[in-house]
Structure formats: structure tokens, C-alpha cells
Simulated scan of single mutants.
Amino acid sequence: MPTTLPVPIEFSLPEGWQPAPADEAGAPGVAFLALHSQPDAGFTANITIDGGFRPDEATLADMADEAVERLHEVAESVVVASRRELGSEAAPGLAQRLTLSAVTDGARRDLVQSQVYLAMVDGNSPHKRAVVRLILTSTTRQEDSVVGDFQEFLRTVRPDTRAEA
């Protein structure tokens, strides 16, 4: 069963990307999955969105470290290639790029993940902090052809104010 996001968001997918049922595609626990129309050597680049409430004091960097540790459980190697803070104090974010080697569909693949973490604090209840994570996963060979799409997608992500009405 797909996960729901802690806050409603809206976005647009770039051309060449199609939504897919997360559970059927082997991505349980994500709220949204989009697949690229051009697989690379049997691997389909994908964009996933997940998130949740974080009432603890963990920073976005702490959450990014947690994600790296979870990937270590399923990947042969995981390297944080870059990490930088985004946004503002009122709307903080963090982006990290990971390189990893993992076995998918019976084949060892060199993959790249671009992860973006967005934190949203409830103005009425500051202890209520929602974090939305947006991830692009592709082969290293395909990264250059899809990272621009991911950046285009990120520019369209915003809170869905219509859902609050």
C-alpha cells in the first residue's frame, strides 16, 4: 500500500516520465513513483517521493546520514559524493548526491541517487515538522541525461494549498 505524505504537495513531471504504482514496481513505502521512458541496460531511472513527521531534533543532515545507512543494508557500496544545504531558515532543505553499487534484477549496477530533503514546520505547532524527500535514482551512465529533468521537476514542487481548503 502506498504511503501518504505528511503534507500535500503539487508538482509537474517533465516529458518522458510517467507515474507508476509504487507497490507494483517494487517500491513499497513511497508516496509517489515516476519512471523514465528510456531504460538503461535494463534499469529504469525513477523519481520517488516519500516523507513523514519528525518530532525529534534530528537535523536534515542527520536524516540524510540515516538514508545512507539504510542504503548500506542493500548496496555493496555507498559514497556521499556531495551534500549541501538549501532553502532558508523558515524552509530549510538539503541535497545530497550518492554513488552506489547494488544488485538489481540480478545484475550489479553502478547507480547514482540525487536526494533532496525539504522540511516544513507547522507555524501553529513548531514541534510538528514534516520532511518530504524527493529522490532521483539512475545508472551512472544515464545520470547526465536525466538529472536536468529532476531539476526541472524540483522547480515545480510546492505545497498544495488547495488541499488545505
Rank of each mutant, 00 (worst) to 15 (best):
E89W: 09
D56L: 11
T140A: 15
G148E: 14
F11M: 10
A90C: 05
E152W: 04
M63N: 09
D23A: 05
V68H: 06
P159Y: 03
L100D: 05
H36M: 06
T140C: 14
V68A: 10
V78L: 02
P159T: 13
A34M: 03
I9L: 11
A67T: 05
S12K: 07
V131K: 07
E57C: 01
S145H: 09
Q115A: 12
R70G: 10
K128A: 12
I47R: 08
R109N: 06
H36K: 09
Q18P: 01
P28N: 00
P2A: 11
G26F: 03
G29P: 02
I49N: 03
R129L: 07
I135T: 14
A102R: 12
E89S: 10
E69Q: 11
R54T: 14
F150S: 00
R141E: 15
T156H: 07
A119D: 08
L13R: 08
S77V: 04
T161Q: 15
G52Q: 07
A20I: 01
P8T: 03
R84H: 14
P28T: 01
V121P: 02
E57F: 08
L5W: 00
P14D: 01
L86W: 08
V157E: 11
A165K: 06
V116Y: 02
L71W: 11
V74T: 14
E69L: 09
Q142K: 08
W17Q: 04
M120I: 14
S138K: 01
A119T: 02
V112E: 10
P14V: 01
G93P: 08
